[in-house]
Design a protein around this nucleic acid. Structure first.
Lengths: 144, 144
DNA sequence: TTCAATTCCTAGTAATTCAGTATGTTTTAA
DNA sequence: TTAAAACATACTGAATTACTAGGAATTGAA
């Protein structure tokens, strides 16, 4: 189950992409639009910032903006930055953790497959696609 | 993240399938092979039993056996019975829960897709396949 | 009929995680 | 100088996890 960190991270990135105009966007504004407290947003966004997906500016008129184009950021990037990992079980990478004696090694390949389909999916969806979809949902999918 | 309930449920079903000979298998034996306490196994297996995947017999020489052929049980059946749901976020089915005012409705389709790829995967793997794979891993994949 | 072995049922519990609040500090532009 | 913002860390109540504990009911065998 994805926690609020992951869900909010996705919403924040979509919000920043939607309202980007080159200027820094204050968390106060994101907070008002997404109805999430500024204080909690600070924690969520710091994960995205440290992961290199954002540029930040402190002080008056400061805020955040995307460090990359929305087409160069995937939902997988965002969710892994916020959640740490999307792995369904522990010990998928560091195989030595599960020795031959561990009976659960018989399900290791099953869990690796599980992990694969998840990552293939989230890596296939870009932030740009999410923003485009949001615009369709809002009924603004006309050409200016 | 799948909890021990789901992971153990999978191991228990594989174990029962591997050691099935028509007789009831006592949890004591599964416990010894899988190195999980009988007391905890009781809780895990009761979920599988209630879901209709097992037949049980109480009393002396009692135990459990599969109620269906391993080819008619999927990993999805087992995991959903043990975990309750594999949904990545809440509110995917009961869409009215997320109203239009909820900003997170913009990500609803993304999460539905996420849920889809998970369920398609786990539904595509049968208990029979898991047992076959376990036999290959054990080096017993020869024909008698 | 008794006994041991089993499933079945419910409660308890220590540790961890979750979903935030709270309280600052540092930085920046006006 | 000041207000507004990011940044950092600690705290907290509630829920969840991963079990253990203690029994009650059932069954076959002695």
């Amino acid at each position: 189950m994805i926690s609020t960190k992951g869900r909010y991270a996705l919403l924040v990135m979509i919000d920043l992409a939607q309202y980007s105009n080159g200027e820094y966007i204050a968390l106060k504004d994101v907070s008002a639009r997404q109805e999430i407290s500024v204080k909690y947003l600070e924690q969520v966004i710091s994960l995205l910032n440290r992961a290199g997906f954002l540029q930040s500016m402190r002080g008056n008129n400061g805020g955040y903006k995307l460090a990359k184009r929305p087409s160069d950021i995937t939902a997988g990037d965002i969710l892994r930055a916020a959640e740490g990992s999307l792995a369904p079980v522990a010990g998928l990478d560091n195989a030595p953790l599960m020795g031959d004696r561990d009976p659960s090694y018989v399900t290791l390949d099953f869990w690796k497959g599980y992990d694969n389909v998840i990552n293939e999916y989230v890596n296939s969806v870009t932030l740009q696609q999410l923003v485009d979809h949001a615009r369709v949902l809002a009924g603004n999918d006309y050409v200016i």
